[in-house]
Amino acid sequence: MSTTFWVNGERQTVDVDPAKPLLWVLREQLALTGTKFGCGIAQCGACTVHIDGVAMRSCVTPVSDVDGRQVTTIEGLGSESGELHPLQQAWIDHQVPQCGYCQSGQLMSATALLADNPNPSDADIDAAMSGNICRCGMYGRIRQAIKATSVASASDEPLFYSVAGVDHV
């Protein structure tokens, strides 16, 4: 049985078990490996994509559910001309990723948040981002990067670290 949907603006038709989760269709049929497998039960958020603009966990979304709908993955987050999404740039500016494995999902959740709420409070960020686990623990930097990209942000908050000392080896 085939399913037809749009991924990053391109029409795709796949002939797979309709129960197969979107995550594995993206990774195995469509060679879009930026979306990651982390838990398989919608607990960690590594597989987050946008479905009609809403952040969803692709590991528990049967591909049949996206028939006729628009899917955006990390590979489609930037502009058509190749420019990074402002949040992707903020992720670089704030040196957010460590291992980086969860960051596709983090970015998909964060971009959905800002699209919906261009000036999120800390509580809004907590609510929107707590479905995404980062085992490297980069939550502070994620929060900073989101705030730096929000409408109200006039300037970056400083990073929370200082380096002092005189002698070197």
Binding site: C39, G40, I41, Q43, C44, I125, D126, A127, M129, S130, G131, N132, I133, R135, G137, Y139, G140, I142, R143, F160, Y161, S162, V163, A164, G165, V166, D167, H168, V169
Partner: peptide
């Protein structure tokens, strides 16, 4: 899995302030 072996999430993550002292001892 993460439902019964949970990880700290955004809502639990504290503000962390780090300070580095370059003392000149061995790295």
């Amino acid at each position: 899995n993460f439902h019964d072996y949970p990880s700290v999430r955004m809502r639990e993550a504290p503000r962390i302030e780090t300070h580095v002292i370059n003392s000149g001892h061995d790295i």
